[in-house]
Structures are given as structure tokens and as C-alpha cells.
């Protein structure tokens, strides 16, 4: 298979995934046993007419496939539906809030990759030394601490007591520090563990023995050869993690009251505004698929075995 074919295949697969996830998102809201209308309005105050009107407004009295095709056609035209609370269209709202989320995602991704790869590699090379122990502890805590808790701890320490950084808001780089740290720690935890294992596997390979037998220094053996081999499988996981970070913003933006798309979701949950939740989830799915596609493609360029395999 040529490279062009591969890229085409990957892009088309990603496209199918997006269509699939649109069906999925749609099904979750409209097919699950819960009545979307009843979950949108408070049953204690709802009159039957209100329910019927809302149902009609949402097109819920039509068969599923019609509902879906309508929804899908709208999505293609950039119409992600509108809020049931204030009838605002969903997509413009998402687009408006996305930059704040993107900034947070990127900074925390950079943070987690830098911390994760550095500690992961050092941890494997200096196995059972103090740096390994520290790295493993960071790794374990990273994957075990809920972000909403680490976020709150950071606020307590750096905002409430030390008063160094703002606890809320989404303007300026200062507001980015704490949420990125809190979110980045999770990613770092996963990446440390992943890179460490990957590195240890590589170090046990036969070719490392060859390299040593050639008289290369440990530095060259580790950082030139072992590292490159270890990072190739790690990249996929790192890609997936960046996607997870995007999802993690929902929670962390609530903690830090940032005006990102996560915040929209949190508000929509409170207001039981299903179309907004649906819109944001679908939007995130698209971004997630695109990120993974990019990672996957970069993977084919980095690994010569994939690049050159006929």
C-alpha cells in the first residue's frame, strides 16, 4: 500500500467515524429510554400542552430516520440545533467559546507531554533510583487524582492562601496556569507510565545489546536509540490523551469558571438543555477525531517501518 493510499484510507476512516459519532450522539439523546422532553422541563410544572409543544418543536413526533436525516442535514449546513432555554443557535455559541478551551487544551497538553516524556524516560533509564521513584509517584497520583480535586487544591494554595494567581476567569495567561497544571497532571500521569513501560521494553531488546557491544556510550544508546524506539508507540497514546484532555476541560472549566465549551455543557446540564449538550459533545467528537487523525498521520511519517512498508 502506498503512502497516499494510506493517508486517504485514514482520512476516509476518520470521516466515517464522524458520521458514526453523529448517529451515536443523536441516538443517545433521542433513543434512550428517558423521555428527552420530560428530562428537559421540570415535570412538576409541566402542563401536557407544554410537553406536546416542545415535542413538536423538537420534531420528536416524527419517525427516527426522518428526525435523524433532518438533524444530519442541518449539521452539514453548520446548524447544530438551538438551545431550548433561549433558542440561541448552538454552533455560534460553541465557536465563540472554543478558543478558551483550545488554549487550555493546548497548554495542558504541552505540559503533560513535557512532564510525561521527561519523567517517563528518566524513570526508565534510572530505574529504581530516586528519580524513578518520584516519577512513579507523580504517575500514580496523576492518574488517581480527580481533576476537580487537584484544581480545588491548587486554588486553595495559590489563590486563597498565597494569592499569587487568580482562581477564576478566562482572560490572560495567568488564568491558564492553574487549570493547565491540574489537567496536565492527569495527562502527565498517563504519559509517564506509558513512556516508562515502553522504554523498559525497548531497553530489554536485543539490539540494545548490539549497540553496547559496538562501544557506544550509554548516553547515545539511551537517548539516540532507545528513546526513539520507545516514543513511536507512545505517540498514539499521547494523541489519545490529548483528546481526553479536551474532554477533561468540561470539568476543569467548571472548577475555574472559565468561559469555554466545557462551561457551556455544565450550564446546559443545570438547565437541562439537551440540544446544547448534544451539540458540544458532537463538536468535541469531531475535534477528537481530527486530533487522532493528525497523530496517526504523523505516526506514519515518524516510524520508518510504517512509512516504508510495502
Amino acid at each position: 500500500m502506498t503512502l497516499v493510499n494510506k493517508v486517504l484510507l485514514k482520512i476516509s476512516t476518520a470521516f466515517v467515524s464522524i458520521i458514526g459519532s453523529s448517529i451515536l450522539v443523536f441516538s443517545i439523546i433521542y433513543l434512550l429510554p428517558g423521555d428527552p422532553v420530560l428530562s428537559m422541563i421540570d415535570p412538576s410544572v409541566a402542563t401536557p400542552e407544554m410537553v406536546a409543544n416542545l415535542r413538536k418543536e423538537l420534531g420528536l413526533n416524527q419517525p427516527f430516520y426522518i428526525q435523524f436525516s433532518e438533524y444530519f442535514m442541518n449539521v452539514l449546513q453548520g446548524d447544530f440545533g438551538q438551545s431550548v432555554v433561549n433558542s440561541e443557535p448552538v454552533l455560534p455559541k460553541i465557536v465563540e467559546h472554543f478558543p478558551a478551551t483550545l488554549a487550555l487544551t493546548i497548554t495542558s497538553a504541552v505540559l503533560s507531554v513535557v512532564i510525561g516524556v521527561t519523567f517517563g524516560v528518566l524513570s526508565a533509564i534510572y530505574r529504581n533510583k530516586w528519580i524513578d521513584i518520584i516519577a512513579r509517584i507523580i504517575g500514580l497520583f496523576g492518574i488517581s487524582m480527580p481533576t476537580f480535586w487537584s484544581g480545588i487544591l491548587l486554588i486553595l494554595i495559590f489563590s486563597v492562601y498565597l494569592n499569587w494567581l487568580p482562581s477564576i476567569g478566562s482572560d490572560g495567561w495567568k488564568t491558564l496556569v492553574l487549570p493547565s497544571l491540574s489537567l496536565g497532571l492527569v495527562g502527565a500521569g498517563f504519559i509517564i507510565r506509558m513512556v516508562r513501560n515502553s522504554m523498559l521494553d525497548v531497553i530489554n531488546e536485543q539490539f540494545i545489546v548490539t549497540l553496547r557491544a559496538k562501544g557506544l556510550s550509554e548516553r547515545v544508546v539511551m537517548y539516540r536509540h532507545a528513546l526513539r524506539n520507545a516514543l513511536i508507540p507512545a505517540i498514539t497514546i499521547i494523541g489519545l490523551n490529548i483528546g481526553e484532555l479536551l474532554a477533561g476541560t468540561v470539568v476543569i472549566e467548571t472548577v475555574f469558571s472559565r468561559q469555554g465549551i466545557g462551561r457551556i455543557v455544565a450550564d446546559a446540564i443545570m438547565a437541562k438543555d439537551l440540544p446544547v449538550i448534544q451539540g458540544v459533545v458532537f463538536f468535541s467528537a469531531i475535534v477528537y477525531v481530527v486530533i487522532n487523525l493528525l497523530v496517526d498521520l504523523s505516526y506514519s511519517f515518524i516510524d520508518p517501518r510504517v512509512r516504508r512498508a510495502h
Binding site: V25, I29, L32, P33, S39, A247, V250, L274, S284
Partner: peptide
């Protein structure tokens, strides 16, 4: 394609 927490969130929101 939908990250874990978002999927759970969408389902939980729909189910009530």
C-alpha cells in the same frame, strides 16, 4: 470517538 467522560455525561444527561 467521544471521550469517556463526555459520553458518560451525554448519556447521564439524557437519562436524567
Amino acid at each position: 470517538t467521544i471521550p469517556g467522560i463526555l459520553l458518560a455525561l451525554a448519556i447521564a444527561a439524557a437519562l436524567g
